[in-house]
């Protein structure tokens, strides 16, 4: 188990849970971040936000927020 922001570019994982305040959880959920959803790390570089792909959508997420998403790395 790890957090979304620690995935490397190209890695695939499955969302396990979301932590943080209700506002974040509700915003993230509406964007498709729910438990059991597969997510692909598209870009994790530099100090800026990360870029992931889930539910047919490219989503940018601030690094701080990505640390609130627990994921289970899946073997490629």
């Amino acid at each position: 188990m790890t957090t979304l922001n620690s995935l490397e570019t190209g890695q695939i994982a499955v969302i396990h849970s979301l932590t943080g305040d209700k506002r974040f959880i509700s915003r993230a959920t509406a964007m498709g971040f729910t438990p059991d959803t597969p997510v692909t790390m598209m870009q994790n570089a530099g100090g800026g936000p990360i870029l992931v792909y889930l539910r047919d959508t490219q989503v940018a997420m601030a690094r701080k927020e990505a640390a609130k998403v627990q994921v289970e790395r899946s073997a490629k």
Binding site: R23, M31, Q58, A60, M61, A62, R63, E65
Partner: peptide, 8 residues
């Protein structure tokens, strides 16, 4: 709130 944005 931090960035959470779709890249269409």
């Amino acid at each position: 709130v931090g960035l959470l944005m779709e890249l269409p």
